[in-house]
Design a binder for these strands. Structure first.
Lengths: 336, 336
DNA sequence: CTGAAAGCGCTTACAG
DNA sequence: CTGAAAGCGCTTACAG
């Protein structure tokens, strides 16, 4: 590997001058700079990130912590979109992306130790069990953290506008004449709380009855538990005319249950999804849903994290809320 | 940050002894080792990866190059699954994962330079425009490369068994009585070539006519171009009784075209997908398709890459072929 | 079994 | 504008 020293001897200059010329700092005679750069190219010089990091204490590396309760990880349709835009934005700003894990050779260390070890400058936490002690430790450490769809005290965060988006969804369904609106919600979490609040308050505001039996729990992104919940709702004497599902994948499960019951969407019963993944718009009937602006969520998260790295003494902790978009599609019909 | 030097002074030992004790090499008195480890824990010592890498020339970091022609990147359903298992396997073996890109601060460098700069030990190339000069440069360099679904000369690779899987699909469709089998294939690539070969040879072997008009090109993972191609096939006088699509996402486009033509799957026309993504089994009719073993593909790629890093002088370049699984589902009916 | 010394490749005050 | 020197935190022959 050719080093700065090779350039220096070839040019007859000191190592420090070469370093300055290469990095464009301080005063270096234009001619000298040109000669150095030319020689570097000629020799195929590539700097050594480890050496630089050791000296400057900067790695320009952001970590991603990314694992949901069902271990979908990267295959989670919603979060893979968020991650994708996070990555683009971060790379554009000169940062590298890596994944945080617990391995250290053949041993196991904590997530925080892994970050320290590798000199990771900041971490984006998404789609993770926030109650895990190691995640808490990381979020409470001096490593800047930005979370998505969850609030860690003292950390920046980007949130989708669950409460208001949910409210909009309920109002839309109501505008189609529905009064008996069931809500199959995800398991308990910050997001779920927000959505339940949006649902309950809006129902109340519209003067609609909130039936305890109309609110069922199901795992996120799990069509099977969603199917079960839907079946339960369909069996009720006074069954709902519309079912709100926790996400689009769950909606696929609901559709299956409805079809197996010999019913049709939206003629016999209406449903909605959540997230607005591409598949929800490729089926018939197209799914009424909330399309999350995953591009903005990821980009804002990257920007915020980088900002907070630069302003570690005075980070921006105000939640950034990203509004979703109602897709008023075919799976909601007029209530009869 | 507490360093090895802090431990050494606290213990009254030399830095070298501390290093040896911590790393478990060479002879260190058991008592000494215990004292060092205890003090390290007490002080909250975490090693410095940059310093170690600078000295040992090893980063234990694998790079991912990952961008398809349509810039789906991480959101590509098939490849995100492959990546997910690649990541698990690599991390279990003590390697870190990062993404390769062209940024160097505010400047742009080549992919190979980025790898050299960051000391990346090996790269997994997936879902990329293999003809790009920078990708070629990387694949032809001394950095070990493993590719997925593509063969770079001199590099290891993991391939799905496109030719045989395609053949199995055609034979399955034929077993249901279909003779007029159209093939909407993806744009030209290694994978496409293999599948076309599988299609053509099997059709021929079954004594079926191969109509030039039955073979149409469409972008991968693009429901819109697939829909267009399907519409074209449906308008033909002598239209096919079954259409093979390039992937499951495309199949969604085909289904739309068929529905809009007032026809039904599989009663009026049969279709198949490819890849076996989860959504293909959540719709009605469930999609007949080839389910790729993305878990194995990713794991084998990681294992192979790590093997080739360790055996750089004598790498394993024999393609690893991973068979898919035929899902004989509802979207193919009996030909009338 | 332990330690002194060199050095990985770079950056950066400091002096000139 | 240029250079000598120190040092980032670690590992590793080598000597004892």
């Amino acid at each position: 590997m050719v080093s700065i020293r090779d350039i220096s001897s070839k040019c007859g200059l000191s190592v420090s001058t070469v370093s300055k010329a290469l990095n464009g700092y301080s005063y270096v005679k234009e001619e000298t700079r040109r000669k150095v750069i030319e020689t570097a190219k000629e020799l195929g010089y590539v700097p050594n990130a480890s050496a630089r990091a050791l000296k400057t204490n900067r790695t320009f590396t952001l970590g991603i912590l990314f694992a949901d309760d069902q271990h979908n990880g990267l295959t989670h349709l919603y979060f893979s979109h968020v991650l994708n835009s996070f990555k683009s934005e971060a790379e554009e700003r000169g940062y590298n992306i890596t994944f945080i894990h617990k391995r250290y050779g053949k041993q196991t260390i904590t997530l925080l130790q892994n970050c320290k070890f590798r000199g990771i400058e900041g971490v984006c936490i998404a789609c993770v069990e926030p109650d895990e002690p190691e995640v808490q430790e990381l979020a409470g450490s001096d490593v800047p953290v930005v979370s998505i769809d969850y609030i860690f005290p003292g950390c920046g965060c980007v949130l989708s506008d669950n409460r208001n988006d949910m409210s909009e969804l309920v109002r839309y369904v109501h505008s189609k004449g529905h009064k008996k609106i069931a809500f199959v919600h995800g398991t308990d979490s910050y997001v779920t709380q927000q959505r339940i609040n949006g649902y309950v308050d809006t129902m109340r505001g519209l003067g609609l009855e909130i039936k305890r039996e109309y609110m069922l729990e199901s795992l996120y992104a799990n069509p099977h538990t969603a199917k079960k919940a839907t079946e339960k709702l369909l069996r009720m004497e006074d069954r709902p005319t519309c079912i709100l599902l926790p996400d689009d994948v769950s909606a696929f499960g609901a559709i299956e249950a409805i079809r197996e019951a010999g019913l049709k969407v939206p003629e016999d019963i209406s449903i909605t999804g959540y997230d607005g993944v591409v598949y929800s718009q490729l089926i018939y009937p197209r799914l009424a849903t909330i399309r999350q602006d995953t591009g903005r969520i990821g980009r804002e998260a990257a920007k915020l994290l980088i900002f907070n790295i630069k302003h570690a003494q005075n980070p921006n902790l105000v939640p950034i809320v990203i509004k979703g978009e109602l897709l008023a599609e075919q799976s909601v019909g007029f209530a009869r």
